[in-house]
Nucleic acid binder design. Sequence first.
DNA 1: ATGGTCGCTTGGCGA
Length: 267
Amino acid sequence: MKITTWNINSVRLRLSGLARIIKNLCPEIICLQEIKVTNDLFPSKDIADLGYPHQAVAGMKGYNGVAILSKRPLTKIKTREWCGKADCRHIFATIADKRLGSIEIHNFYVPAGGDIPDPKENAKFAHKLQFLKEVAAWQKGRQKSPGNMVLVGDLNIAPLPTDVWSHKQLLKVVSHTPVEVKALEQLQLSGPWIDAIRKKIPPEKPVFTWWSYRSKDWTINNRGRRLDHIWTTEALKEKITAVDIYQSARSWEKPSDHVPVTITLTP
DNA sequence: ATGGTCGCTTGGCGA
């Protein structure tokens, strides 16, 4: 079973990219972030025609928004609000697989956090830290023995030194500051969750999933960050057989600034 | 040290 996560940065603008990903990877599940559209304007029909009739969507006008697309039925679809905001950053659902069993899939779009890495000066950064804290507390409290779960999304944090193009130069840049990395580690302990990407790609090796639009040619300096993640619970740990970072998607015409990230689970 | 570009929407915010 392949599960793909992609910050699509407007689902309506990038349907051809989505079709291309589907053609090349054919994942069972695709989790999208930043769909930037209300539920009623979500391109359900187009996506059903691409082979994903089962859709869980939490969208709003203009900003944020998450969706889970599936070839097979989704059950127990739920959305959750965090930090008292109805800003469409979390949706989850269950998919049944004969051999793997039921898997609960969480799709997150963590707040980016603004520019100043100080929660007292910057409300957006405070929101980001609070969001991570609330999700961790919730996850800790909800299940005594976590079963098959997968957590994916744009977590907007690059935790390892090799998750950014320059550890030293990004230590004070939001997405790689120690306080955020600690908050992400606390969230990871709440599953506890396994970093599926780093289970397959050694931590010594740089891995990026996002390259800023504010560069004429993203390939010249390769100044990327690994902001998009796939985690699993222990129960699925030994079933992670492959990961894929779809880096070439960054060079497509009208690209998202994020590229798709995929794991394969084998029973 | 600074500015650079997108998307949604039409002035300016968020990333």
